[in-house]
């Protein structure tokens, strides 16, 4: 495989953004990601984006977002109706052909205008489960119950939340941060048993942009590129009764194929719910004592839907490029209760 690296990353401050539409949120982030590379839209070989029409409540949400790129004269471009992490995967595949050296990847999503927990119910099969309208938080709670019954303690969940809030203090893009001890968290009332409000993600609007480059082009554009050493994604069956919710088989498999090998200085795991971080870390064989997990605060600190997975790759790459480590694991998830998972192993050396 051809060596491809993340050479630039930018993200918006995530919050409920009531005054700007998706294009307005995306445009400054695109500018910010392109600036350090010196590239313009027409230096880019391939552009790929990820988003969902159902967040905007309109068909073709990605069509107007493309205006932010300025595709004139016309460009080579594609779109996945998935988290932007999968757009990055498609761009990585395209760069393997060898005829182009750079790719632009972006994702955007506004969760705040609708009731996102109910909107996500529309991902369920439309005949059997969907008509019952189980919302995303209730489904996560079912999974959390299965996880606790498999031999875990709610103190583990509080520990994840406390670390996320603490780590997010240093992340200007995070929505929730602070120094809260685990006992205080456990004093909070249950929200969707066994989950408390803080075990669930905030409602976030946002956008993120990654610039990829291959080989010498990456070295030219970035002092310390974050090289993609392995990337893979897998999907589990959706039906909740057909899989063990306390584990993530697809994460485990993707991690093996991507070559995680249980080794990383830092890991950015896309876990919108506290228990999911523990399930993903276990599936990837990552140990909290050896690996800094979610140094950004992760999706519990800010969760722009369709964007948060790409942010994990961007955050991991940015930290490697800044010298915070030499090897990182980034993970993205999609679908109810961790149904689909992508794992990316990144490395940077001086």
């Amino acid at each position: 495989m051809r060596d491809v690296a993340v050479v630039s990353f930018a993200q918006s401050a995530t919050r409920r953004d009531q005054t700007r539409n998706e294009v307005e949120i995306l445009l400054p982030v695109l500018r910010e990601a392109m600036a350090p590379t010196g590239l313009t839209t027409h230096d880019i070989g391939f552009t790929c984006s990820g988003s969902s029409d159902y967040l905007a409540g309109q068909a073709f949400a990605f069509v107007s977002a493309l205006d932010a790129v300025g595709p004139w004269p016309p460009i080579q471009e594609s779109h996945v109706e998935m988290d932007g992490a999968w757009a990055l995967y498609e761009a990585w595949v395209r760069l393997q052909h060898g005829d182009i050296d750079t790719a632009l990847v972006y994702a955007f999503g506004k969760s705040s205008p609708g009731d996102v927990a109910r909107v996500l119910s529309l991902q369920l099969d439309p005949y059997v489960t969907g008509p019952l309208w189980p919302d995303a938080i209730s489904l996560a709670a079912l999974q959390a119950r299965a996880f606790l019954e498999a031999g875990h303690d709610e103190k583990d969940l509080a520990r994840v939340v406390a670390r996320s809030r603490r780590n997010a203090v240093g992340n200007p893009h995070a929505q929730l941060s602070g120094d809260i001890d685990e006992a205080t968290l456990l004093d909070e009332p249950l929200y969707a048993d066994p989950l408390r409000m803080h075990d669930c993600p905030p409602i976030s609007d946002g956008a993120a942009v990654v610039v990829l480059a291959a080989g010498d082009k990456a070295r030219e554009l970035c002092e310390r590129p974050a090289w993609i050493r392995g990337i893979d994604h897998r999907i589990d069956v959706q039906a909740l009764g057909s899989r063990d919710l306390s584990q993530s088989a697809s994460t485990r498999l993707a991690g093996e194929k991507a070559g995680v090998g249980g080794r990383a200085d830092l890991a950015e795991l896309h876990a919108p719910f506290s228990h999911q971080e523990l399930i993903v870390a276990e599936a990837l064989g990552l140990d909290e004592t050896a690996t800094s997990i979610n140094p950004s605060g992760g999706a519990l600190a800010s969760n722009p839907v369709m964007v948060a997975g790409l942010v994990r790759i961007g955050e991991a790459a940015r930290r490697l490029s800044a010298g915070e480590g030499e090897r990182a694991v980034a993970h993205a998830t999609s679908g109810p209760a961790l149904q689909q998972n992508l794992v990316c192993v990144l490395e940077a050396t001086s």
Partner: peptide, 26 residues
């Protein structure tokens, strides 16, 4: 009226345990 229906269709398409990509370009 199904959001990202590929998630639900994965099983019918024999994609369980495999990579599945969903494209949308109008």
């Amino acid at each position: 009226g199904v959001m990202m229906p590929e998630l639900y269709l994965a099983e019918a398409l024999g994609a369980i345990g495999k990579p599945l990509i969903r494209v949308h370009t109008a």
